[in-house]
Amino acid sequence: MMSRSFKNKLFKGAVHASAALTVLFLIFTIGYIFMRGLPHVSWKLISSQASYISNIIGIFPNIMNTLYIIGLTIAIALPLSIGAAIYLTEYTVDDASRMFARIIAFAMETLASIPSIIFGLVGMMIFTQLFGIKQGVLVGSLTLVMMILPTIIRTTQESLATVPQEWRQGALALGAGKWFMIRTIVLPSAARGIVAGVILAIGRIAGESAALLFTAGFGLVLHDFFRALTSSSASLTVALYVYASERGETDVAFAIAVILMAIVLALNTFTKLLTKFWGNENVSVNVSAEKAADEANRAASHLAGIGVCDRSKRPQPMVQR
């Protein structure tokens, strides 16, 4: 039998070894990508498009396609998910709406668990086969909207929930309508959470490939935004796949990998800076609002602070109903 102290050492060793292994994987993966790819990232590669005739490979069209897809997807998904999140947190007041909110929450969980290849499959069948839209940025973006909706809804919901209840009550007590209250108090205070959700979503979109293969397509030609909507347009990730496994252009693939890694790093750093910059303002308000009188004061002063209670803009309390 093993002695207890030996076992303890063994356990400790296993825990440390696992952590070391994880870090090692990461350092190796990132190090290798940059080592192989960085020498091949050149201005020429980034700024030109692929041409068989002059035998150059350029990924400028793919960079643009990735940007198009990010922009269009966010533009469609953001209003939709903010709206759904507002409904879930602000309008679930009676049993019927709470029941409905539970159904939405379940739908979101389900959406979040569906693999991206299935989004790609269904997106292709619905948008190109059923609706007859040609493969391109539009179909790709519509597919990704379905995919990232849960991400933005969840983060928005979380940040809406951190807005102190007293602020809402204060606004309502001062005569603001519900929509006015949401627009001027709740949404601005939840802005940071929404931004964080959007960054998360951008990261997912930039790294997505399986959902885009059959929806946005493999095209490597440069189009302007409106042409790209309905022309086969490969994103950076899809281009990486094409160059690596169909063309055998490993160097180009690694160069694209470096660019993708740089995007991930930039988004991560940006989120970190944002959290640091914004800090934990909400917490102090939450804790200090103890007495009812205090609450009312605070809400009123906050309203004044963000301009709701400016004499000129003050809502007319009695007219509202």
């Binding site: 990461l26 930039a206 997505e208 490939s209 899809v238 990998a257 991930v264």
Partner: peptide, 15 residues
């Protein structure tokens, strides 16, 4: 590091 590992696109892992 773990966050970063989570953010690496799957095609890059494949490559």
């Amino acid at each position: 590091a773990v966050e970063l590992l989570a953010g690496i696109p799957s095609v890059v892992y494949g490559l």
